[in-house]
Design a protein around this nucleic acid. Structure first.
Length: 270
DNA sequence: CTAAATACCTGATGGC
DNA sequence: TGCCATCAGGTATTTA
């Protein structure tokens, strides 16, 4: 489900409710996510939330003496509410905060994770090999060109590889490549420097706009206050198989690239 | 080293 | 109604 924009929206949303808050109670489902959930009640009771940040699609919550590392997988949602109720289906972690807010982590498919890390967070095995943040200034034409020039795989796979660039998933890969007029199957090494310049700015503008729109909700995604994202109205190719290209009116195609649906216009993208 | 396939889950959907 | 196959926003691990 969530790519960089959805994770950023989630992170921003929960920050204002949790920053500086002490954790009064912790509950867990006892069900295993991608990895087993650690003994959070023992670890976090009475501790204070100091910082909330994001690295790629990971949310990092800094709490006295350690970090909570959270990933939403395909179906994860973090919600904030105030009223007490029974643990719900697919609710795996719940924090009762001092200010009365209850923060819950839901994940239907359980591809996500909630881990506790006491060491330096950037050294964590799941974070240390992550690629560049696409919304930083360091991610520019030269950086992208140098990344692509040596890769023989499909450009779509390369920009989705989180060890190279973080945060771009199946939706925003298709959308960025459409905007840059690059066919998703094109070999990365065959993309010219001029095209790299366009792709670089298009990736940034797509992600930025998606954040502003509150993310993309196809089916499940909601921000921490239960509000869906509206970037789906900006989608030009994703999910539009058989519909007319907004630019040239030809039919949008859907092919599999490494097993993932990939939408594009065979006329506008080369 | 790179690139593609596989496995991990639940649930929705469509064909027969 | 039921059953089966396929699909879904991710990614660590395995295989080639």
């Amino acid at each position: 489900m969530p790519e960089l924009p959805e994770v950023e929206v989630t992170k921003k949303g929960i920050s204002k409710f949790c920053l500086g808050q002490k954790i009064n109670t912790v509950m867990t489902s006892g069900v295993r996510l991608r990895y087993p959930i650690p003994d959070l009640p023992k670890l976090l009771l009475g501790k204070k939330i100091k910082v909330v940040s994001r690295r790629g699609k990971y949310i990092i919550i800094g709490i006295s003496e350690g970090f909570l590392l959270i990933h939403l997988g395909m179906s994860g949602i973090i919600s904030i509410n105030k009223k007490e109720q029974k643990m719900q289906k697919h609710e795996h972690v719940r924090f009762y905060l001092q200010n009365g807010n209850i923060l819950s982590y839901f994940d239907q498919r359980r591809f996500g994770l909630v881990l506790w890390e006491k060491q330096k967070i950037s050294e964590h095995r799941l974070l240390k090999n992550l690629g560049i943040e696409p919304l930083t200034d360091r991610f520019d034409t030269d950086y992208l060109y140098n990344l692509l020039r040596t890769r023989k795989g499909a450009i779509k796979n390369v920009i989705m590889n989180s060890n190279l660039i973080v945060g771009i998933g199946n939706i925003y890969a298709s959308e960025s490549l459409f905007k840059a007029n690059i066919k998703p199957t094109r070999l990365a090494c065959s993309v010219s420097k001029k095209k790299c310049a366009k792709l670089c700015t298009d990736i940034k503008s797509i992600l930025q706009e998606a954040i502003i729109k509150g993310g993309t909700t196809i089916r499940d995604f909601k921000n921490c206050q239960g509000i869906i994202g509206n970037f789906k109205y900006n989608l030009k190719v994703y999910g539009r198989e058989g519909a007319e290209c907004f630019h040239c009116s030809r039919k949008i195609k859907n092919i599999k690239i490494s097993g993932r649906s990939s939408f594009y216009c065979s006329n506008c993208q080369r």
